[in-house]
């Protein structure tokens, strides 16, 4: 893997607490997102993953606790902590190229430099030939790549991805996972990837954070020592299965809690986990 660059950041999060209308969502939630690593946060739907990202990104102020980026408290949203959103957030009224260039443009980057950077990123995500298209003219997988490009071109200290491959069909999803892990291995940026899909989580992660349901906090940190570069072959190894099995047991408890709490989304998860358990 490439050397860790200086402008890659790290998060230290301690004792986050947050509630919506009296319902505690996060409670004493502490975690670290170390420099140059791919940290994956996995937890059942509704456990507060998006809430956590919103706080880290600066969209919401937590009711309690601290978020430090390289030792400094974070304020409002900024291009040093970029989010790739759960649902597509590409501007429908801009072409792919305009979308990707947006951050550089509003921050006043000189046109020449901007064009160079945008083109380089578009090549990297394989969208050079589609840069004049509007997002609605792209396939789901291309939209996700454009979104990755729009964030990466700004060279953020931390890249946060909130279930970015949700809603893609299974095939495209697998391709995107491999594509994304390749990008990460090439650049080595600090990444925080959020998902409720355990297989995706283990496949991508350097570190796996298992999140609890109500209140949301980190239950366990699993170091995923699978070799890089990763390809789907890794999913056939014993080590992968051991890690997944361990995480599955931890997660199953939380998913059952969510299930009992009547979270409709949790039905899907328990169902998915049961299938995953039966499949191996």
């Amino acid at each position: 893997m490439s050397t860790v660059r200086r402008n890659f950041g790290e998060f230290q999060v301690t004792g986050l607490t947050h509630a919506y209308g009296g319902v505690p969502v996060l409670e004493d939630c502490s975690l670290e997102v170390p420099r140059g690593k791919l940290t994956v946060l996995v937890g059942p739907s509704g456990c507060g993953k998006t809430t956590l990202i919103n706080i880290l990104a600066g969209y919401e102020a937590p009711a309690g606790g601290r978020v430090l980026l390289d030792g400094q408290p974070v304020g409002g949203p900024g291009p040093d902590r970029l989010v790739v959103f759960q649902e597509t957030a590409l501007f429908p009224w801009m072409t792919v190229e305009q979308n990707v260039a947006f951050g550089c443009r509003v921050r006043g980057m000189p046109a020449g430099e901007m064009r160079e950077r945008v083109q380089a990123v578009l090549v990297k995500v394989g969208l050079s030939d589609f840069q004049a298209k509007y997002p609605s003219q792209l396939s789901g997988g291309m939209q996700r790549r454009a979104e990755l490009a729009r964030a990466m071109v700004n060279d953020p200290k931390v890249l946060m991805l909130d279930e970015p491959f949700r809603g893609l069909d299974a095939m495209t999803r697998s391709i995107m996972q491999e594509f994304y892990v390749g990008l990460f291995e090439e650049v080595g940026r600090t990444n925080l990837f959020i998902t409720h899909d355990l297989e995706e989580a283990v496949f991508l992660a350097d570190r796996l954070l298992i999140m609890t349901y109500r209140p949301g906090r980190i239950k366990e940190v699993i170091e995923v020592d699978l070799p890089r570069p990763r390809t789907f072959q890794v999913m056939a190894t014993q080590r992968y299965n051991d890690i997944r099995q361990h995480a599955l047991e931890l997660l199953f408890e939380e998913a059952s809690k969510a299930f009992e709490a009547g979270s409709k989304a949790a039905f899907d998860l328990v169902d998915g986990l049961a299938r995953a358990a039966g499949r191996q």
Binding site: P79, L82, V83, F91, V106
Partner: peptide, 20 residues
């Protein structure tokens, strides 16, 4: 979500106005 995307990418209010 468009307002959020614009603001985290570094928009000033008038950028948000004209672009979102």
């Amino acid at each position: 979500v468009y307002f959020r995307a614009a603001s985290c990418l570094g928009s000033r209010p008038r950028d948000v106005f004209w672009n979102v």
